[in-house]
Design a protein around this nucleic acid. Structure first.
Length: 550
RNA sequence: GUCCCUGUAGCUCAGUUGGAUAGAGCAUUUGCCUUCUAAGCAAAGGGUCGCCUGUUCAAAUCAGGCCAGGGACGCCA
């Protein structure tokens, strides 16, 4: 929140106290302002009069009138008015607005950052794709959203850890190992049978070929058939993880922690977690299996944690994993999952509650499906048969910037239509180019005007309507960042940047920045510097580059 | 069958703890380059916010019930 807004809230609170001393403090405690959609309703608006209407048993308009009697015009407040149902609308002075412009220049790319998170620890776990194949488009979306969210939270003062959970054991990994073995035998010309639940993707052949080229059989002087299943499993996992890591690097996504499920199993933490559940009597035996009483916490049915063959189900290690997350003291524990894990949310939340943790600290975001459109037609995808579009292919085809931008473009829980042709287009239709172009255009003007230095003394000259509008848009940047952080929705920032770029392009067409009028030029250069700062700052938070030239 | 998500302009989507005459981009139509990047700008048309009932000063937003689309419902992961 910027200083102007804080000042206004204080002014309102005091005015309310003076006007209606009888009301409870709570009624005005969590007061916040909104930005009216329409300019004529001012720059900030409060609905406090309507909200107090019931308690005071008075008409909102009368309450509003009573409040504004105690709000004085100042350097900041140019005007304050009461509107129809009972809104109190504030009109900010140009002087105050220009003050923010000075802040933006002074703070540079730090403008908009805050201490909202109070240096508390936040963990965000995302992608966490099983190492059984390359990253797909769906993972790409999770990667883009997760990484951007991490950047935004960090900008808001959180101490953020990005984590990738590697599912490196279990039935799927065994199937992977067997698939590789079969392909390897095939290549070296020995008899083999492809497993029923195997991975048919062509990438298995590539790994098999690589294994053959490494001369493994010659080196160890063993026959192919004597190589163990575990050997193939480890080799395949390692190879695929290195591909995944590389794809993520190419996408500009770095993880702080790679957490291996195998290590979790070895640590004994799973047994520990089960023991606690058992002690709290949330476990019971039925049909030779051990069940977790998740229905006690709102789940549809109880869940098996130990199968009758003694092995764990998928959820069991995950319970221990989440227990550890809570133990590490994260203020926010954020998971980004695919839609196939939807039914899984209540299960894991139940487990966290059963262990005695506050489920409000656990945020599970479901990144909805991505449908790729090529030439206006959706592309078919089937992971099972190895027919899918990989993240690497998307990056290759449309570039990192466009890919990241498009993945973030919609609300996380909305289905996303990804139009490949549009993302690739270097035209006005493409929103990522639209924003980057504004940045490049400003850079170009600044270069053109290199003789003119920005000068903060003449900012009062920025009195054209479009200039004031543009600055006011800049003023709201910190509020947008905060909203994106609180709602865990990076797309909110993206939408703002589109607006800002639009205001700039419009301004650019209406007025010349560089003219013979030196003081005016100096002031306008300051303005475009500020716009450039925020475009660069916002794009960076999305993980998209802000080019100087296009 | 149970649960979850979605339903807003021709298309893709916004709509901030409920707020003022429901917005943007694309598409369509019409204008703007001797001047800082036309990869741009200006203007116009386009709506039963899926349907019904309720809650209140106020409902696209909240509650309940329908309708339609998608997804999840394993001792798989």
């Amino acid at each position: 929140m910027i200083k102007i807004e804080i000042d206004l809230i204080i002014a309102i609170k005091e005015a309310v106290k003076k006007a209606f001393s009888e009301i409870s403090i709570n009624a005005v405690e969590d007061l916040s302002l909104e930005v009216p959609k329409e300019k004529r309703f001012g720059d900030f608006s409060s609905n406090i009069a309507m909200r107090l209407s019931r308690e005071l048993r008075k008409a909102p308009l009368d309450i509003a009138a009573g409040i504004i009697k105690h709000i004085e015009k100042s350097d900041i407040i140019q005007d304050v008015k009461v509107e129809k149902p009972g809104f109190i609308n504030f009109y900010i002075s140009n002087k105050a607005v220009i003050g923010v412009l000075e802040d933006i220049i002074e703070e540079g790319v730090e403008f908009g950052s805050s201490s909202l998170g109070k240096s508390k620890k936040a963990q965000i776990e995302f992608v966490s794709a099983n190492p059984t194949g390359p990253l797909t488009v769906a993972h790409g979306r999770q990667a883009a959203i997760g990484d951007s969210l991490a950047r935004i939270l960090k900008f808001c003062g959180y101490n953020v850890i990005k984590e990738y959970y590697i599912n490196d054991e279990g039935v799927q990994i065994q199937a992977l190992g067997k698939s590789l073995k079969a392909r390897f035998m095939e290549i070296v010309g020995e008899k083999s049978e492809f497993p029923e639940n195997g991975y048919k993707g062509g990438y298995i052949y590539e790994i098999a070929q690589k294994l053959k080229d490494s001369g493994v059989t010659e080196r160890t002087q063993t026959s192919s058939a004597s190589l163990s299943d575990d050997f193939f499993m480890d080799y395949a996992t390692k190879e695929i993880m290195s591909t995944i890591t590389k794809d993520l690097e190419d996408f500009g996504v770095h993880f702080d922690v790679w957490y291996s499920q195998k290590s979790l199993t070895k640590s004994g933490k799973i047994e520990k977690a089960l023991e606690i559940l058992k002690d709290k009597e949330f476990l019971y035996q039925k049909d030779g299996a051990t069940w977790f009483r998740s229905t006690d916490f709102g789940d549809d049915k109880d869940r098996v944690v130990i199968k009758n063959d003694g092995s764990y189900t998928y959820v069991t290690p995950d319970i221990a994993y989440h227990k550890e997350k809570f133990e590490k003291g994260y203020e926010k524990i954020i998971n980004i999952w695919g839609p196939d894990h939807h039914g899984y949310i209540s299960r894991i939340k139940a487990a966290c509650q059963a262990l005695g943790y506050d489920k409000e600290r656990l945020f599970i975001l479901i990144a909805q499906l991505v449908t790729l459109y090529r030439e206006g037609k959706p592309t078919k995808m089937s992971t099972r048969e190895g027919e899918f579009v990989t993240l690497a292919e998307i990056i290759d085809e449309v570039g990192r910037d466009a890919a990241r931008f498009f993945f973030i473009m919609r609300r996380t829980e909305s289905h996303l239509d990804f139009d490949l042709a549009l993302a690739k287009a270097k035209t006005l239709d493409n929103p990522v180019y639209y924003i980057q172009y504004a940045h490049a255009r400003i850079s170009s003007i600044i270069e053109f005007s290199e003789n003119t230095k920005p000068n903060l003394d003449n900012l009062a000259l920025l009195d054209k309507q479009q200039e004031v509008d543009l600055i006011k848009t800049l003023v709201h940047y910190p509020k947008i960042i905060e909203a994106a952080a609180v709602n865990l929705e990076p797309y909110m920032l993206l939408a703002y940047l589109q607006d800002l770029a639009g205001f700039f392009h419009s301004y650019y067409n209406a007025y010349r920045i560089v003219t013979d009028d030196k003081p005016l030029t100096e002031a306008r250069i300051v303005l475009i510097h500020a716009v450039k700062n925020i475009l660069a700052s916002g794009l960076n938070l999305l993980g998209v580059s802000a080019p100087e030239k296009m």
